[in-house]
Write a protein that binds this DNA or RNA. Sequence first.
DNA 1: AATACCAAAACTGTATACATGATTGACGGA
DNA 2: TCCGTCAATCATGTATACAGTTTTGGTATT
Lengths: 245, 245
Amino acid sequence: MTRPSPRTDIAHEALKQAILERALQPGTKLPEDEIGAHFGMSRTLVRAVLAKLQSEGLVDARPKRTAIVAQPTLAEARDVFEVRRGLEAQAVDLVIKRWKPSFGAELEGLVREEDAARERHEEHVAGRLGGEFHIRLAKLSGNVLLERYMSELVTRCSLILAVYGSPHSHDHSGPNEHIEIIAALRAGDAAKAIALMDAHMSAVERRAMHDTDPAGAALGDVLARYAGAIAAPAGAIPLKRKRTR
Amino acid sequence: MTRPSPRTDIAHEALKQAILERALQPGTKLPEDEIGAHFGMSRTLVRAVLAKLQSEGLVDARPKRTAIVAQPTLAEARDVFEVRRGLEAQAVDLVIKRWKPSFGAELEGLVREEDAARERHEEHVAGRLGGEFHIRLAKLSGNVLLERYMSELVTRCSLILAVYGSPHSHDHSGPNEHIEIIAALRAGDAAKAIALMDAHMSAVERRAMHDTDPAGAALGDVLARYAGAIAAPAGAIPLKRKRTR
DNA sequence: AATACCAAAACTGTATACATGATTGACGGA
DNA sequence: TCCGTCAATCATGTATACAGTTTTGGTATT
Protein backbone atom coordinates (compact mmCIF):
# COMPACT_ATOMS: atom_id res chain seq x y z
CA MET A 1 0.00 0.00 0.00
CA THR A 2 2.67 2.48 0.96
CA ARG A 3 6.42 2.44 0.51
CA PRO A 4 7.69 3.76 3.81
CA SER A 5 11.18 2.83 2.82
CA PRO A 6 12.91 5.89 4.27
CA ARG A 7 13.66 5.33 7.93
CA THR A 8 12.16 8.66 8.73
CA ASP A 9 8.82 7.58 7.27
CA ILE A 10 8.88 4.42 9.30
CA ALA A 11 9.41 6.34 12.50
CA HIS A 12 6.72 8.80 11.55
CA GLU A 13 4.21 6.09 10.82
CA ALA A 14 5.11 4.14 13.93
CA LEU A 15 4.71 7.11 16.22
CA LYS A 16 1.49 8.10 14.55
CA GLN A 17 0.03 4.65 15.02
CA ALA A 18 1.22 4.45 18.59
CA ILE A 19 -0.37 7.77 19.43
CA LEU A 20 -3.65 7.01 17.70
CA GLU A 21 -3.91 3.62 19.34
CA ARG A 22 -3.30 5.28 22.65
CA ALA A 23 -0.21 3.18 23.26
CA LEU A 24 1.50 6.49 23.89
CA GLN A 25 -0.84 8.47 26.07
CA PRO A 26 -1.30 12.20 25.69
CA GLY A 27 1.35 14.04 27.63
CA THR A 28 3.94 11.31 27.25
CA LYS A 29 7.40 12.77 26.78
CA LEU A 30 9.11 12.09 23.48
CA PRO A 31 12.84 12.78 23.94
CA GLU A 32 14.73 13.03 20.69
CA ASP A 33 17.55 10.87 22.03
CA GLU A 34 15.39 8.01 23.06
CA ILE A 35 13.35 7.96 19.88
CA GLY A 36 16.50 8.16 17.83
CA ALA A 37 18.04 5.26 19.68
CA HIS A 38 14.89 3.24 19.21
CA PHE A 39 14.67 3.74 15.48
CA GLY A 40 18.39 3.81 14.91
CA MET A 41 18.63 7.32 13.64
CA SER A 42 20.15 10.55 14.75
CA ARG A 43 18.39 13.39 16.48
CA THR A 44 18.56 15.34 13.26
CA LEU A 45 16.06 13.03 11.67
CA VAL A 46 13.96 12.57 14.78
CA ARG A 47 13.61 16.30 14.87
CA ALA A 48 12.15 16.33 11.38
CA VAL A 49 9.72 13.58 12.29
CA LEU A 50 8.56 15.37 15.40
CA ALA A 51 8.14 18.58 13.44
CA LYS A 52 5.90 16.80 11.00
CA LEU A 53 3.88 15.17 13.74
CA GLN A 54 3.47 18.55 15.32
CA SER A 55 2.18 20.06 12.10
CA GLU A 56 -0.34 17.24 12.08
CA GLY A 57 -1.43 18.11 15.58
CA LEU A 58 -0.35 14.82 17.12
CA VAL A 59 2.59 16.19 19.03
CA ASP A 60 3.14 19.31 21.02
CA ALA A 61 6.71 20.56 20.66
CA ARG A 62 7.30 23.89 22.31
CA PRO A 63 10.52 25.87 21.99
CA LYS A 64 12.85 24.49 24.54
CA ARG A 65 11.06 21.62 26.14
CA THR A 66 10.79 17.98 25.40
CA ALA A 67 8.10 17.21 22.88
CA ILE A 68 5.04 15.41 24.20
CA VAL A 69 2.09 13.59 22.75
CA ALA A 70 -0.56 16.23 22.09
CA GLN A 71 -3.37 16.75 24.57
CA PRO A 72 -6.09 18.35 22.52
CA THR A 73 -8.25 20.69 24.55
CA LEU A 74 -12.01 20.68 24.28
CA ALA A 75 -11.83 23.96 22.37
CA GLU A 76 -9.43 22.48 19.86
CA ALA A 77 -11.61 19.44 19.50
CA ARG A 78 -14.59 21.60 18.76
CA ASP A 79 -12.63 23.52 16.13
CA VAL A 80 -11.44 20.38 14.43
CA PHE A 81 -14.91 18.89 14.17
CA GLU A 82 -16.31 22.18 12.96
CA VAL A 83 -13.84 22.57 10.13
CA ARG A 84 -14.17 18.94 9.27
CA ARG A 85 -17.92 19.23 8.91
CA GLY A 86 -17.41 22.04 6.46
CA LEU A 87 -14.91 20.20 4.35
CA GLU A 88 -16.90 16.97 4.41
CA ALA A 89 -19.83 18.88 2.99
CA GLN A 90 -17.69 20.31 0.26
CA ALA A 91 -16.26 16.90 -0.52
CA VAL A 92 -19.72 15.40 -0.85
CA ASP A 93 -20.71 18.22 -3.11
CA LEU A 94 -17.75 17.80 -5.40
CA VAL A 95 -17.98 14.03 -5.50
CA ILE A 96 -21.58 14.11 -6.59
CA LYS A 97 -20.70 16.51 -9.38
CA ARG A 98 -18.22 14.08 -10.88
CA TRP A 99 -19.87 10.86 -9.82
CA LYS A 100 -19.02 7.62 -11.58
CA PRO A 101 -20.44 4.20 -10.76
CA SER A 102 -17.01 2.93 -9.86
CA PHE A 103 -16.95 5.39 -6.97
CA GLY A 104 -19.76 3.56 -5.24
CA ALA A 105 -18.00 0.23 -5.50
CA GLU A 106 -14.79 1.73 -4.21
CA LEU A 107 -16.41 3.20 -1.14
CA GLU A 108 -18.43 0.09 -0.46
CA GLY A 109 -15.30 -1.95 -0.59
CA LEU A 110 -13.91 0.08 2.26
CA VAL A 111 -17.06 -0.30 4.30
CA ARG A 112 -16.97 -4.05 3.82
CA GLU A 113 -13.36 -4.18 4.89
CA GLU A 114 -14.25 -2.20 7.97
CA ASP A 115 -17.11 -4.56 8.79
CA ALA A 116 -14.85 -7.53 8.36
CA ALA A 117 -12.23 -6.06 10.63
CA ARG A 118 -14.80 -5.35 13.29
CA GLU A 119 -16.08 -8.87 12.90
CA ARG A 120 -12.59 -10.04 13.75
CA HIS A 121 -12.57 -7.67 16.72
CA GLU A 122 -9.68 -5.76 15.26
CA GLU A 123 -11.00 -2.49 16.52
CA HIS A 124 -7.94 -0.44 15.65
CA VAL A 125 -7.98 -1.64 12.07
CA ALA A 126 -11.68 -0.99 11.83
CA GLY A 127 -11.19 2.47 13.21
CA ARG A 128 -8.52 3.24 10.68
CA LEU A 129 -10.70 2.01 7.85
CA GLY A 130 -13.53 4.14 9.14
CA GLY A 131 -11.32 7.17 8.74
CA GLU A 132 -10.06 5.89 5.43
CA PHE A 133 -13.61 6.10 4.10
CA HIS A 134 -13.66 9.83 4.54
CA ILE A 135 -10.20 10.30 3.11
CA ARG A 136 -11.17 8.26 0.09
CA LEU A 137 -14.27 10.33 -0.37
CA ALA A 138 -12.13 13.46 -0.34
CA LYS A 139 -9.83 11.89 -2.87
CA LEU A 140 -12.75 11.14 -5.14
CA SER A 141 -13.53 14.83 -5.11
CA GLY A 142 -10.54 15.15 -7.40
CA ASN A 143 -9.13 17.93 -5.27
CA VAL A 144 -5.71 17.00 -3.98
CA LEU A 145 -5.58 19.76 -1.43
CA LEU A 146 -8.96 18.84 -0.05
CA GLU A 147 -7.74 15.29 0.31
CA ARG A 148 -4.68 16.47 2.21
CA TYR A 149 -6.70 18.60 4.58
CA MET A 150 -9.18 15.81 5.11
CA SER A 151 -6.41 13.39 5.97
CA GLU A 152 -5.11 15.73 8.57
CA LEU A 153 -8.54 16.32 10.01
CA VAL A 154 -9.36 12.64 10.17
CA THR A 155 -6.11 12.01 11.98
CA ARG A 156 -6.79 14.75 14.47
CA CYS A 157 -10.29 13.47 15.05
CA SER A 158 -8.88 10.04 15.77
CA LEU A 159 -6.65 11.47 18.44
CA ILE A 160 -9.54 13.37 19.94
CA LEU A 161 -11.61 10.22 19.94
CA ALA A 162 -8.75 8.37 21.57
CA VAL A 163 -8.41 11.02 24.23
CA TYR A 164 -11.97 11.88 25.03
CA GLY A 165 -13.88 8.84 23.85
CA SER A 166 -14.47 6.07 26.35
CA PRO A 167 -11.73 3.45 25.95
CA HIS A 168 -13.60 0.93 23.89
CA SER A 169 -16.55 2.79 22.45
CA HIS A 170 -14.85 2.78 19.09
CA ASP A 171 -16.92 4.19 16.30
CA HIS A 172 -19.61 1.58 16.28
CA SER A 173 -22.43 2.77 14.09
CA GLY A 174 -19.99 4.05 11.54
CA PRO A 175 -20.44 1.45 8.82
CA ASN A 176 -24.20 1.79 8.64
CA GLU A 177 -24.02 5.53 8.38
CA HIS A 178 -21.40 5.21 5.68
CA ILE A 179 -23.69 2.93 3.70
CA GLU A 180 -26.48 5.45 3.84
CA ILE A 181 -24.18 8.18 2.66
CA ILE A 182 -23.09 6.10 -0.29
CA ALA A 183 -26.72 5.57 -1.23
CA ALA A 184 -27.38 9.29 -1.21
CA LEU A 185 -24.29 9.93 -3.28
CA ARG A 186 -25.40 7.39 -5.82
CA ALA A 187 -28.80 9.01 -6.01
CA GLY A 188 -27.07 12.29 -6.67
CA ASP A 189 -28.94 13.80 -3.75
CA ALA A 190 -26.41 16.31 -2.48
CA ALA A 191 -28.64 17.80 0.18
CA LYS A 192 -29.44 14.43 1.67
CA ALA A 193 -25.85 13.26 1.50
CA ILE A 194 -24.66 16.37 3.25
CA ALA A 195 -27.35 16.05 5.87
CA LEU A 196 -26.41 12.44 6.50
CA MET A 197 -22.74 13.33 6.63
CA ASP A 198 -23.48 16.07 9.11
CA ALA A 199 -25.49 13.73 11.27
CA HIS A 200 -22.69 11.22 11.04
CA MET A 201 -20.17 13.83 12.13
CA SER A 202 -22.39 14.91 15.00
CA ALA A 203 -22.73 11.32 16.09
CA VAL A 204 -19.00 10.84 16.08
CA GLU A 205 -18.46 14.10 17.88
CA ARG A 206 -21.10 13.34 20.48
CA ARG A 207 -19.64 9.91 20.99
CA ALA A 208 -16.27 11.50 21.47
CA MET A 209 -17.19 14.38 23.68
CA HIS A 210 -20.15 13.14 25.61
CA ASP A 211 -18.29 10.23 27.05
CA THR A 212 -15.92 12.61 28.68
CA ASP A 213 -17.28 12.87 32.19
CA PRO A 214 -18.73 9.47 33.09
CA ALA A 215 -17.29 7.64 36.05
CA GLY A 216 -14.77 5.83 33.90
CA ALA A 217 -12.32 8.67 33.45
CA ALA A 218 -9.67 9.03 36.11
CA LEU A 219 -9.99 12.33 37.90
CA GLY A 220 -6.30 13.05 37.69
CA ASP A 221 -6.35 12.55 33.94
CA VAL A 222 -9.20 14.92 33.45
CA LEU A 223 -7.69 17.61 35.64
CA ALA A 224 -4.36 17.32 33.91
CA ARG A 225 -6.10 17.68 30.61
CA TYR A 226 -7.97 20.78 31.66
CA ALA A 227 -5.05 22.34 33.47
CA GLY A 228 -3.51 23.85 30.38
CA ALA A 229 -6.75 24.83 28.75
CA ILE A 230 -8.53 26.81 31.41
CA ALA A 231 -7.31 30.26 32.39
CA ALA A 232 -7.06 30.78 36.11
CA PRO A 233 -10.45 31.87 37.48
CA ALA A 234 -10.52 35.64 37.74
CA GLY A 235 -10.44 35.83 41.50
CA ALA A 236 -8.25 32.85 42.14
CA ILE A 237 -5.47 33.13 44.65
CA PRO A 238 -2.39 34.08 42.64
CA LEU A 239 -0.67 31.03 44.00
CA LYS A 240 2.88 31.16 42.79
CA ARG A 241 2.66 28.39 40.27
CA LYS A 242 4.41 25.33 41.47
CA ARG A 243 6.44 23.52 38.89
CA THR A 244 4.48 21.05 36.90
CA ARG A 245 6.49 17.95 37.44
CA MET B 1 2.79 43.16 15.17
CA THR B 2 4.84 39.97 15.33
CA ARG B 3 7.93 39.05 17.25
CA PRO B 4 10.07 37.31 14.64
CA SER B 5 12.97 37.36 17.01
CA PRO B 6 14.23 33.84 16.24
CA ARG B 7 16.56 33.98 13.26
CA THR B 8 14.69 31.12 11.69
CA ASP B 9 11.47 33.14 11.72
CA ILE B 10 13.22 36.05 10.09
CA ALA B 11 14.50 33.87 7.29
CA HIS B 12 11.10 32.28 6.87
CA GLU B 13 9.35 35.60 6.65
CA ALA B 14 11.95 37.06 4.33
CA LEU B 15 11.76 34.17 1.91
CA LYS B 16 7.99 34.19 2.03
CA GLN B 17 7.87 37.86 1.20
CA ALA B 18 10.45 37.52 -1.54
CA ILE B 19 8.50 34.71 -3.15
CA LEU B 20 5.14 36.41 -2.90
CA GLU B 21 6.52 39.66 -4.28
CA ARG B 22 7.99 37.68 -7.12
CA ALA B 23 11.48 38.86 -6.29
CA LEU B 24 12.33 35.17 -6.34
CA GLN B 25 10.70 33.78 -9.43
CA PRO B 26 9.12 30.33 -9.50
CA GLY B 27 11.75 27.74 -10.27
CA THR B 28 14.58 29.70 -8.69
CA LYS B 29 16.98 27.40 -6.87
CA LEU B 30 17.28 27.79 -3.14
CA PRO B 31 20.53 26.10 -2.06
CA GLU B 32 20.76 25.56 1.67
CA ASP B 33 24.32 26.80 1.78
CA GLU B 34 23.65 30.08 0.12
CA ILE B 35 20.56 30.85 2.15
CA GLY B 36 22.38 29.93 5.31
CA ALA B 37 25.27 32.21 4.42
CA HIS B 38 22.88 35.01 3.67
CA PHE B 39 21.00 34.81 6.94
CA GLY B 40 23.98 33.78 8.99
CA MET B 41 22.72 30.42 10.04
CA SER B 42 23.65 26.83 9.45
CA ARG B 43 22.08 24.48 6.97
CA THR B 44 20.36 22.73 9.84
CA LEU B 45 18.14 25.71 10.39
CA VAL B 46 17.73 26.54 6.75
CA ARG B 47 16.47 23.05 6.25
CA ALA B 48 13.75 23.59 8.82
CA VAL B 49 12.75 26.84 7.16
CA LEU B 50 12.57 25.25 3.74
CA ALA B 51 10.52 22.39 5.13
CA LYS B 52 8.03 24.84 6.53
CA LEU B 53 7.86 26.79 3.30
CA GLN B 54 7.26 23.54 1.50
CA SER B 55 4.40 22.63 3.79
CA GLU B 56 2.95 26.02 2.94
CA GLY B 57 3.23 25.28 -0.73
CA LEU B 58 5.67 28.07 -1.48
CA VAL B 59 8.65 25.84 -2.08
CA ASP B 60 9.14 22.57 -3.85
CA ALA B 61 11.78 20.44 -2.12
CA ARG B 62 12.13 17.01 -3.59
CA PRO B 63 14.23 14.26 -2.07
CA LYS B 64 17.73 14.80 -3.29
CA ARG B 65 17.61 17.93 -5.28
CA THR B 66 17.99 21.56 -4.53
CA ALA B 67 14.79 23.17 -3.33
CA ILE B 68 13.16 25.62 -5.72
CA VAL B 69 10.47 28.25 -5.51
CA ALA B 70 7.19 26.47 -6.17
CA GLN B 71 5.63 26.58 -9.62
CA PRO B 72 1.97 25.91 -8.97
CA THR B 73 0.28 24.14 -11.84
CA LEU B 74 -3.10 25.17 -13.13
CA ALA B 75 -4.61 22.09 -11.52
CA GLU B 76 -3.17 23.01 -8.16
CA ALA B 77 -4.38 26.55 -8.55
CA ARG B 78 -7.87 25.31 -9.23
CA ASP B 79 -7.78 23.12 -6.15
CA VAL B 80 -6.59 25.91 -3.93
CA PHE B 81 -9.30 28.28 -5.03
CA GLU B 82 -11.91 25.58 -4.71
CA VAL B 83 -11.04 24.71 -1.14
CA ARG B 84 -10.70 28.34 -0.29
CA ARG B 85 -14.18 29.10 -1.51
CA GLY B 86 -15.53 26.40 0.75
CA LEU B 87 -13.73 27.62 3.81
CA GLU B 88 -14.56 31.26 3.14
CA ALA B 89 -18.21 30.31 3.10
CA GLN B 90 -17.85 28.51 6.38
CA ALA B 91 -16.02 31.44 7.89
CA VAL B 92 -18.75 33.84 6.84
CA ASP B 93 -21.31 31.53 8.32
CA LEU B 94 -19.58 31.27 11.65
CA VAL B 95 -18.78 34.95 11.89
CA ILE B 96 -22.40 35.92 11.37
CA LYS B 97 -23.43 33.54 14.13
CA ARG B 98 -21.25 35.30 16.67
CA TRP B 99 -21.37 38.76 15.20
CA LYS B 100 -20.49 41.74 17.34
CA PRO B 101 -20.47 45.37 16.22
CA SER B 102 -16.76 45.60 16.90
CA PHE B 103 -16.16 43.05 14.15
CA GLY B 104 -17.42 45.48 11.53
CA ALA B 105 -15.09 48.21 12.71
CA GLU B 106 -12.17 45.83 12.75
CA LEU B 107 -12.71 44.69 9.20
CA GLU B 108 -13.37 48.18 7.94
CA GLY B 109 -10.13 49.30 9.49
CA LEU B 110 -8.28 46.80 7.33
CA VAL B 111 -10.09 47.89 4.20
CA ARG B 112 -9.20 51.50 4.92
CA GLU B 113 -5.59 50.58 5.42
CA GLU B 114 -5.62 48.75 2.13
CA ASP B 115 -7.15 51.73 0.38
CA ALA B 116 -4.56 54.00 1.88
CA ALA B 117 -1.74 51.74 0.79
CA ARG B 118 -3.08 51.61 -2.73
CA GLU B 119 -3.41 55.35 -2.68
CA ARG B 120 0.28 55.48 -1.91
CA HIS B 121 0.92 53.05 -4.77
CA GLU B 122 2.33 50.48 -2.38
CA GLU B 123 0.81 47.62 -4.27
CA HIS B 124 2.56 44.88 -2.35
CA VAL B 125 1.38 46.26 0.96
CA ALA B 126 -2.12 46.65 -0.38
CA GLY B 127 -2.06 43.10 -1.64
CA ARG B 128 -0.98 41.80 1.71
CA LEU B 129 -3.70 43.75 3.46
CA GLY B 130 -6.22 42.38 1.00
CA GLY B 131 -5.27 38.90 2.09
CA GLU B 132 -5.21 39.98 5.70
CA PHE B 133 -8.88 40.83 5.43
CA HIS B 134 -9.74 37.23 4.79
CA ILE B 135 -7.46 35.93 7.49
CA ARG B 136 -8.99 38.34 9.96
CA LEU B 137 -12.44 37.21 8.96
CA ALA B 138 -11.43 33.62 9.63
CA LYS B 139 -10.03 34.66 12.97
CA LEU B 140 -13.31 36.31 13.88
CA SER B 141 -14.98 32.96 13.31
CA GLY B 142 -13.42 31.96 16.60
CA ASN B 143 -12.06 28.80 15.07
CA VAL B 144 -8.29 28.70 15.36
CA LEU B 145 -7.88 25.85 12.92
CA LEU B 146 -10.00 27.57 10.34
CA GLU B 147 -7.82 30.62 10.75
CA ARG B 148 -4.71 28.56 10.20
CA TYR B 149 -6.06 26.93 7.08
CA MET B 150 -7.24 30.25 5.75
CA SER B 151 -3.80 31.77 6.27
CA GLU B 152 -2.25 29.01 4.29
CA LEU B 153 -4.80 29.29 1.52
CA VAL B 154 -4.43 33.03 1.26
CA THR B 155 -0.69 32.64 0.99
CA ARG B 156 -1.00 30.05 -1.72
CA CYS B 157 -3.47 32.19 -3.61
CA SER B 158 -1.02 35.06 -3.47
CA LEU B 159 1.65 32.92 -5.07
CA ILE B 160 -0.77 31.80 -7.74
CA LEU B 161 -1.72 35.38 -8.41
CA ALA B 162 1.94 36.28 -8.60
CA VAL B 163 2.62 33.47 -11.02
CA TYR B 164 -0.40 33.58 -13.28
CA GLY B 165 -1.74 37.08 -12.80
CA SER B 166 -0.50 39.77 -15.14
CA PRO B 167 2.41 41.59 -13.50
CA HIS B 168 0.62 44.70 -12.34
CA SER B 169 -3.05 43.83 -12.35
CA HIS B 170 -2.96 43.55 -8.61
CA ASP B 171 -6.29 42.93 -6.98
CA HIS B 172 -7.92 46.18 -7.88
CA SER B 173 -11.60 45.89 -7.11
CA GLY B 174 -10.82 44.12 -3.85
CA PRO B 175 -11.64 46.89 -1.41
CA ASN B 176 -15.09 47.58 -2.81
CA GLU B 177 -16.03 43.95 -2.72
CA HIS B 178 -14.79 43.71 0.82
CA ILE B 179 -16.96 46.64 1.82
CA GLU B 180 -20.02 44.97 0.38
CA ILE B 181 -19.25 41.78 2.25
CA ILE B 182 -18.95 43.66 5.51
CA ALA B 183 -22.34 45.22 4.89
CA ALA B 184 -23.94 41.82 4.38
CA LEU B 185 -22.27 40.49 7.49
CA ARG B 186 -23.58 43.39 9.50
CA ALA B 187 -27.06 42.75 8.18
CA GLY B 188 -26.72 39.17 9.28
CA ASP B 189 -27.54 38.05 5.78
CA ALA B 190 -25.50 34.88 5.52
CA ALA B 191 -26.74 33.91 2.08
CA LYS B 192 -25.91 37.25 0.60
CA ALA B 193 -22.53 37.44 2.30
CA ILE B 194 -21.63 34.01 1.02
CA ALA B 195 -22.80 34.90 -2.46
CA LEU B 196 -20.72 38.07 -2.41
CA MET B 197 -17.75 36.21 -1.08
CA ASP B 198 -18.11 33.63 -3.80
CA ALA B 199 -18.32 36.29 -6.45
CA HIS B 200 -15.31 37.94 -4.93
CA MET B 201 -13.37 34.70 -5.05
CA SER B 202 -14.42 34.10 -8.63
CA ALA B 203 -13.29 37.57 -9.55
CA VAL B 204 -9.91 37.01 -7.96
CA GLU B 205 -9.59 33.63 -9.59
CA ARG B 206 -10.61 34.93 -12.98
CA ARG B 207 -8.19 37.80 -12.65
CA ALA B 208 -5.49 35.31 -11.81
CA MET B 209 -6.19 32.63 -14.35
CA HIS B 210 -7.63 34.51 -17.25
CA ASP B 211 -4.61 36.72 -17.63
CA THR B 212 -2.56 33.66 -18.28
CA ASP B 213 -2.42 33.56 -22.05
CA PRO B 214 -2.36 37.16 -23.25
CA ALA B 215 0.62 38.30 -25.26
CA GLY B 216 2.45 39.44 -22.16
CA ALA B 217 3.50 36.04 -20.91
CA ALA B 218 6.80 34.76 -22.23
CA LEU B 219 6.33 31.58 -24.22
CA GLY B 220 9.25 29.85 -22.57
CA ASP B 221 7.82 30.58 -19.15
CA VAL B 222 4.46 29.15 -20.00
CA LEU B 223 5.89 26.02 -21.55
CA ALA B 224 8.16 25.46 -18.61
CA ARG B 225 5.20 25.81 -16.31
CA TYR B 226 3.13 23.32 -18.22
CA ALA B 227 5.94 20.88 -18.77
CA GLY B 228 5.61 19.20 -15.41
CA ALA B 229 1.84 19.25 -15.33
CA ILE B 230 0.93 17.68 -18.62
CA ALA B 231 1.56 14.02 -19.30
CA ALA B 232 3.38 13.40 -22.53
CA PRO B 233 0.86 13.25 -25.37
CA ALA B 234 -0.05 9.65 -26.02
CA GLY B 235 1.72 9.37 -29.35
CA ALA B 236 4.66 11.60 -28.61
CA ILE B 237 8.10 10.50 -29.61
CA PRO B 238 9.61 8.92 -26.49
CA LEU B 239 12.46 11.32 -26.79
CA LYS B 240 15.05 10.33 -24.25
CA ARG B 241 14.52 13.23 -21.92
CA LYS B 242 17.37 15.63 -22.17
CA ARG B 243 18.53 17.08 -18.90
CA THR B 244 16.64 20.15 -17.91
CA ARG B 245 19.46 22.50 -17.23
C1' DA C 1 27.11 18.74 -35.32
C1' DA C 2 25.06 16.20 -32.24
C1' DT C 3 25.67 12.63 -28.58
C1' DA C 4 27.62 9.93 -25.09
C1' DC C 5 30.76 9.81 -21.44
C1' DC C 6 33.31 11.30 -17.35
C1' DA C 7 35.35 13.75 -13.85
C1' DA C 8 34.97 18.10 -11.12
C1' DA C 9 31.80 20.91 -8.65
C1' DA C 10 27.67 21.67 -6.23
C1' DC C 11 24.47 20.10 -2.88
C1' DT C 12 21.99 17.26 0.02
C1' DG C 13 21.68 13.30 3.75
C1' DT C 14 22.95 12.20 8.23
C1' DA C 15 25.61 11.88 12.35
C1' DT C 16 27.96 14.04 15.91
C1' DA C 17 29.94 17.62 18.92
C1' DC C 18 29.57 21.41 21.83
C1' DA C 19 26.97 25.05 24.05
C1' DT C 20 22.98 26.31 26.51
C1' DG C 21 18.79 26.02 28.77
C1' DA C 22 15.26 23.22 31.51
C1' DT C 23 14.20 19.77 35.15
C1' DT C 24 14.85 17.41 39.19
C1' DG C 25 15.77 16.15 43.76
C1' DA C 26 18.26 16.96 47.81
C1' DC C 27 19.53 20.08 51.34
C1' DG C 28 18.90 23.82 54.54
C1' DG C 29 16.19 27.70 56.53
C1' DA C 30 11.80 29.58 58.33
C1' DT D 1 6.10 20.88 57.63
C1' DC D 2 6.60 23.75 53.97
C1' DC D 3 9.37 26.49 50.78
C1' DG D 4 13.22 28.14 48.43
C1' DT D 5 17.91 27.37 46.67
C1' DC D 6 21.32 25.09 43.94
C1' DA D 7 23.92 21.87 41.51
C1' DA D 8 23.75 17.63 38.80
C1' DT D 9 21.33 15.73 35.01
C1' DC D 10 18.75 15.63 31.07
C1' DA D 11 17.45 17.30 26.63
C1' DT D 12 17.31 20.67 23.17
C1' DG D 13 19.65 24.52 19.86
C1' DT D 14 22.90 24.93 16.41
C1' DA D 15 27.07 24.27 13.81
C1' DT D 16 30.00 21.37 11.41
C1' DA D 17 32.08 17.26 9.29
C1' DC D 18 31.95 13.59 6.10
C1' DA D 19 29.66 10.56 2.93
C1' DG D 20 26.93 10.00 -1.09
C1' DT D 21 24.13 11.92 -5.17
C1' DT D 22 23.06 14.97 -8.55
C1' DT D 23 24.45 18.43 -11.79
C1' DT D 24 27.50 20.52 -14.85
C1' DG D 25 30.86 21.41 -18.55
C1' DG D 26 34.16 19.75 -21.26
C1' DT D 27 36.03 16.24 -24.29
C1' DA D 28 36.14 12.42 -27.07
C1' DT D 29 33.31 9.76 -30.45
C1' DT D 30 30.37 8.87 -34.21
